[in-house]
Design a protein around this nucleic acid. Structure first.
Lengths: 398, 398
DNA sequence: CACATTACGTTAGAGACACGATGAAACCCA
DNA sequence: TGGGTTTCATCGTGTCTCTAACGTAATGTG
């Protein structure tokens, strides 16, 4: 049980200032006082800290014609390091190298065998390849983050990953001993949600639900300014919500699950029944873009079912937005009308605040970007709970 | 935007020590170090603070036969003050006066007219009456908390209370100017959830859902160690979840809502159709206890519908427990079997952690006790977000 | 019976924050 | 041209936390 000591507060405030600079661009200390809500003296100390670390550069601004001392602008020095994000899926590994502010610099993709060792070797090779491509050494890597399609413990262990066929794998530990930089590992959909709050469409949103579709349908809840995982880590696992009584059989053994209608192969199977040989979301999206009416019909039906699940989520959680992400993104434009139709029809708490359903800023790459988000947290020495906006910026007292 | 200053940390730590003493009983400083996770030096300073405030008494313990300096025991001095909790409902006001550790000392109940002024006058009179009954003056009242069946803003204003017929009422402000002690006002179901975490069945639970039934069915979500309200304050409003397609008409204008089957008058109406003239949950509970098979059947049906809603909640939120409270408590024993049957049948995320459904420790008085909980927070100068266990006792870093 | 051992609580020092005051660097205007 | 004003950043003081060392009061032990 960790205590709320001064060093922790300093880390928190350093992160607040860093994020303010990252999101809002270069700023003077006075502007940072406004955007972070910190005391000028604190900003001054944090600014010195960041200067000493070499993370920010200071440039004297010329006079702007106004009275008063001209400000000294702080800016993140993106050249002093990179973040590495990665994603493990069954059979595939993706790597994304970005600047310290999350701008992409290099990507890599490769296929891996089914064992943990295979995957880790491939991942390590991919990271080396991506770094080599842009001539960046490990001395410039500030942190690595990895998104995994599995139920994770808080310490970065894979508790159970049915798609990968893994159980009880100390992933964070194994990667940390391989690399000498901070390593963060988390569930892929949670990571995608994190990326959305750090870099994407949910940047100023405190309450949203992330729904990511790849081989399965995953959900993550970001509530009250932080990820919510539930008492056993299952919160937001909406792939097996029942949407059709006695409906199609699902891989989980039950019937009528959302996944049995919206997952990639489920959608492909449904289209195959109607004479369309389209195996991937990408191919289905292309056909939809071409105006294939059968494809459009199937997507509309799937969208209506997704809308039913979203309606239930909205009724219970009252989120500000719902973000759709992952490979599913390829077909989202043709799901959305049915989703919104169903939502308007079914989610009708008598006097409800309005919820928007939007597509992720990163589309299919949301999870890989999530790896970068995990890396950024790790680079700032910030465990997830510290990003809690309530703890960081409490509202006025009652 | 408030800052994380030393004074706030002190308030937090004072509250942590106080709650440790309240829950765990008298303890030495060393025991408090263990139970709160604070540093011995901090506990020492906090203990002096509490002694100076007169909130705790210290008694030198005799030697226990073990080596070492004998400890000095700290104990909350329950005689130095009282907490006042209250509950407003349409037409009725309840007041509960307790010691500083939440033990009841006096209760009062009365009826009030429909206007805000009526209710506040009745409330004020009731508090005076309850205090008078035990001969306690206002100088001993540390704080007052009030639970209200309405959508509340964070500042204690009634935004919308359909059952009361109120809108935009600055309730906290009006009560605070009447009394010169701290006053906290909040939604009744949220308050009941708070009481359950402070005094009741959910004391060590970080994730649970409170479902309270009175004239309507209300829900509150306590997630990750704190109340979650949603982006518009509607989170957990489960009364109008649809449980029967095209079912009975509900007061909200829709059909098939849970409230249309489980609310007090809905249940009464359903029983009237079958020849039973039972107007209240209490009367229905009595009949059920007597073994009236018609009543038992109707309750079983209602329990199945409630179970369906709970199943959805469990699938999305993965809570540790569900707590049923309010006047509904009178019939909970005859709802539970059907609830659990339905839950086992419907909530079956493939590999889900188990969720218990339990009755509130305070039954029909959960909301009044919630008022006491609000008062306790106010007495410790603790706005709700400060009780966040993550902010207070962060887990080890990633 | 003197001294070690054990357990409990407090004090001393360093780091961090907030507040208020001070220093720094421009503009403005008589 | 020189003082006043405005704006930006830093410094000094007080409080709080944590770490580490110390004081205090009992029991054990040769």
């Amino acid at each position: 049980m960790q205590r709320l000591n001064p060093a922790l507060i300093r880390r928190l405030n350093v992160a607040r200032v860093f994020h303010a600079l990252r999101v809002g661009g270069p700023a003077s200390q006075t502007e940072l006082v406004r955007s972070t809500g910190l005391d000028p003296a604190t900003v001054s100390a944090v600014a010195r800290h960041l200067r000493d670390e070499g993370l920010v550069t200071t440039t004297r601004q010329p006079s702007r014609g106004r009275a008063g001392r001209p400000p000294t602008q702080l800016a993140i020095d993106a050249s002093v390091g990179v973040l590495v994000g990665a994603r493990l899926e069954p059979g595939t590994v993706r790597v994304l190298v970005t600047t310290l502010v999350g701008e992409p610099r290099a990507t890599w993709q490769g296929s891996a065998g089914p064992t943990v060792d295979d995957a880790l070797e491939t991942l390590a090779g991919g990271v080396e390849a991506a770094l080599g491509e842009i001539g960046v050494g490990w001395d410039q890597v500030r942190a690595v983050g990895v998104g995994v399609p599995a139920l994770m413990s808080l310490s970065g262990r894979v508790a159970y990953g049915p798609n990968l066929g893994w159980r009880h794998v100390p992933l964070q530990e194994r990667l940390a001993e391989r690399w000498s930089v901070p390593v963060a590992v988390d569930n892929d959909t949670s990571a995608a949600a994190l990326a959305e709050t750090l870099f994407g469409a949910a940047r100023d949103v405190r309450d949203f639900v992330m729904i990511a579709g790849h081989s399965g349908i995953g959900g993550a809840l970001y509530l009250g300014g932080r990820l919510y995982r539930g008492s056993g880590g299952f919160a937001g696992e909406i792939g097996h919500a029942r949407v059709v009584d006695g409906g199609r059989r699902c891989s989980c053994g039950d019937r009528g699950c959302l996944e049995a209608y919206l997952a990639e192969d489920a959608l492909a199977a449904r289209l195959a029944e109607r004479g369309r040989d389209l195996a991937t979301y990408a191919a289905i999206g292309t056909a939809a873009a071409d105006g294939d009416t059968v494809v459009l019909e199937v997507l509309d039906e799937a969208g209506a079912l997704l809308g039913r699940v979203i309606a239930d989520l909205v009724d219970v959680l009252d989120p500000e937005v719902i973000v759709l992400a992952g490979a599913l993104s390829h077909v989202v434009p043709w799901l959305l009308p049915a989703v919104e139709r169903t939502l308007a029809d079914e989610a009708l708490g008598a006097y409800r605040s309005r919820c928007r359903v939007i597509a992720s800023s990163f589309g299919p790459e949301a999870v890989t970007m999530g790896g970068v988000g995990l890396a950024m947290e790790a680079a700032l020495s910030l465990p997830g709970w510290l990003l809690d906006q309530d703890a960081a910026m409490p509202r006025s007292a009652t």
